[in-house]
Amino acid sequence: MKKRIQIITGHYGSGKTEFAVNLALQYADAGVKTALADLDIVNPYFRSTERRSLLEAHGVRVITTSFSGYVDLPAITPEVLTLFDDPSYHGIIDMGGDPEGAHVLGRFEKQLAREDCDVLCVLNANRPETKTVEKAVLYLRGIEQASGLKVTGLVNNTHLCRETGVEDILKGAALARAVSEETGIEVAYHAVERKFAEQVRYQLGEGELLPIDIYMCKPWEFGL
């Protein structure tokens, strides 16, 4: 059972934003009143806010750091409190990468203490810093320490951008299972590019298959 508020964390470059954008669109398309908060204070580029018009066209409310992320020192707007104060929303929080990015959650300690949230840790087995169980668990624990929250679910989002193959997804599923065994944290999702979804559907093990489309394109990839 997914919680009303889903916080998405992980190592930077693991694909948190792509996952968050897809998750928000799928909730909204299913008729759920959805808000996506871009709380990434780490990355200056490839932010969920850049997909604001698409998200809003699907009915997703987009809450962002001040100045739309185009400053060196993004500030968190009080609008984020909407997620906690208005329970009619399904809230998705796109965190910045690494323990540094997870620090932001400290600001919402009081709200989070009252709320039962999903804290999802995105794993990408092709990222050199999280490719082994040992390294992935180290990052996960670091994020827990910085945010003061316990990770409740793992997300296998293993890809290689345009060079992704089925073997990457299955390698990621195996890593997620192994991290799950090591930590006791369930595998919540496998985010899989739509064209591969049917090929891997029965090989992933526990966790919901979330077919995703690629929205966080590089500037020259749009419309191609």
Partner: peptide
């Protein structure tokens, strides 16, 4: 440039 520095690739 910033794009090369910030983007992810294989």
């Amino acid at each position: 440039d910033g794009m090369i520095g910030q983007m992810m690739e294989a």
